[in-house]
Design a protein around this nucleic acid. Structure first.
Lengths: 344, 344
DNA sequence: GTGAAAGCGCTAACAG
DNA sequence: CTGTTAGCGCTTTCAC
């Protein structure tokens, strides 16, 4: 009676159905043809025993884990967590499990590499990790499926980036339309392409209008919540503060909002502030935040699709640049403020 | 030269070091004593070949995957994503990988069960899934390590809940201190213990002051962002609207804030609003949100600790109730509003 | 159609 | 101290 101790194996099923394990394997994988009656018996046994093949044993035999790895900087950033949702749902729908690891940027960059060498995953999605193409050489050389998000590695590894440059231009154009001329930038870091490209978009638009960003209008946070506060204060303390501030992401833009408010400034009347990402927070601040939307969920979905395709049909590198969308709200000065009468 | 095709196995290392695979296994696992010189050779070979044991093979042999599974309702909720961070960091620090799956509440509740039967994980952390004790019977009976967060299953499975009842009382007392008497509640659902316990706390405190919540002051959202808006409108449309609104979580409280503002009401002057969770958003709204903090990261950490302990020393059920903390901000009427002068 | 047997890469007795 | 060998649970030729 009490067999409970150990797991139900394919042998148990075979015994119960009075066949060999190879036949059980056959019906499980639907490969060869099996006599209908035998199939019946086996399927019945499977159900009765509640049998589930061991992913480990199967993985070892097939050299496939049906698991994909996701390495992300920080699950806490709403922008990334939305992306994780896209990754998870897509992988799950395809019958894949998701192994997730958070890797601080400066860490030994081998963590994801290990997931591969240990055969834990069939493919890898790397998000905004600051990896170089050379870090991926071994993986790519062995034909291991990898996709990167928010990191532009050129051609031969599937890459999904948003049009950061274009997004920067969108915002810049819009600020210029409002008549702002003195525009400052709160960078996310000094080495992240995303931050740099957004800045480049801003700069190019300004340049086309014979404007430029003075050095002291360039300050830097670290993309994380809270990190936009001090830089904003620096800007406000300048002899001639900017008329508008463009933060490299929404979290920092919200910090800027807070800093401005604490200084007694009204946004956008005294100073305009815009962000990037369109996280949920951007719709809940006062004033609501004008920003650029990135298709986070979509990027996650595409990356998984790419990895899955690569692990089936062989590698098919591609580089997809996703479009951004300007989300006009109150903080740029566009919409009338709701609620608290501003003129009072 | 070109061996690149296949993975580096323990045999390769053995051959290179001119020993048997068992000796390699020994030094890798540091079990038996091995001659220093041999050890040297083997370690050198490992490095030279860049050898990493296959997690699959090792798992199959040991019946341990060094992976733990996390099943969570929704990674997108900042409260949960902070918890995920706690789980991930703790697991990683202990050398464990994290398999993550999101499971909608109403779904076939067998998803996590499968992770176990397929031997994909050594343990499971279940977050706010609405599981019953009976759903876990098979796992518990087999001594499989499970911990649940934000779901009270009684004694014999490690449980980590926050003191929802106490948190509800904290907020209720505070609202009463402000002099509010007509208090409404926006529930997260009608069947979630978390939401029910918070309400119970509120009710008990009111009852102690001979107050009660009229039926039309009880409305319901679904905990998710956006779901507090309509319920709040219902409250505001009442012949006699409440003086204060207690939302079961911050996301809904923020929706309530928005709804009130769109109706031209000033918070907290015309109506007070409080939430629960203390997500980052609560510090960025206008007015900032008075709420109750839950130790999300901590809960994640504790759950992993419990699972890991159980998978080593055998099961050690416990039930931990974590304390909550009242975070007093502006939306209750306590602090002076910053920035936009409210008296003007 | 179905079974026997050889791996997949590793660990763990059991001998030397 | 170190090598031999038998599994772990499954897939997959190769025979029958």
């Amino acid at each position: 009676m009490e067999r409970a101790k150990t797991r139900v194996t394919i042998d148990d099923v075979a015994k119960r159905a009075k066949v060999s394990i190879s036949t059980v394997s056959r019906v499980l994988n639907g490969l060869d043809r099996v006599h209908p009656a035998t199939r019946q018996r086996i399927q019945a046994a499977v159900v009765e025993l509640g049998y589930q093949p061991s992913a480990l044993a199967r993985g070892l035999a097939l050299n496939r884990t049906h698991t994909i790895g996701l390495i992300v900087l920080n699950v806490t950033d709403p922008f990334f967590s939305e992306m994780v949702r896209g990754v998870e749902e897509t992988a799950a729908a395809a019958g894949y499990s998701l192994l997730i690891a958070c890797q601080p940027r400066q860490a030994e960059e081998r963590r994801y590499h290990q997931l591969f060498t240990e055969s834990r995953v069939d493919g890898l999605v790397l998000v905004a990790l600051g990896v170089q193409r050379s870090d991926l050489d071994q993986l790519v050389a062995r034909g291991f499926p990898v996709a990167v998000i928010q990191e532009d590695l050129g051609g031969d590894v599937p890459t999904f980036v948003v049009d950061n440059y274009g997004g920067g231009r969108l915002l810049a154009d819009h600020l210029l339309d409002h008549g702002y001329r003195r525009i400052a930038y709160i960078a996310g870091s000094n080495y992240t392409p995303a931050s740099a490209d957004r800045l480049r978009g801003l700069r190019d638009v300004l340049a086309a209008h014979d404007l430029r960003i003075p050095d002291d209008y360039l300050v830097c946070g670290n993309f994380m919540s809270g990190s936009g506060y001090e830089p904003m204060l620096q800007l406000l303390d300048l002899p001639q503060p900017p008329e508008a501030v463009f933060a490299a992401n929404d979290q920092m833009a919200c910090d800027a909002l807070r800093a401005a408010r604490e200084r007694g400034l009204r946004v956008p009347d005294d100073i305009a502030i815009v962000g990037f990402d369109d996280i949920i927070l951007a719709s809940y601040t006062t004033p609501t935040l004008t920003t650029v939307r990135q298709p986070a969920y979509e990027m996650g979905r595409l990356a998984i699709d790419a990895v899955l395709a690569a692990s089936t049909n062989g590698p098919q590198p591609q580089r997809v640049v996703l479009p951004t969308e300007l989300m006009i709200r109150e903080s740029c000065g566009c919409l009338p403020q709701r609620g608290t009468a501003k003129g009072a």
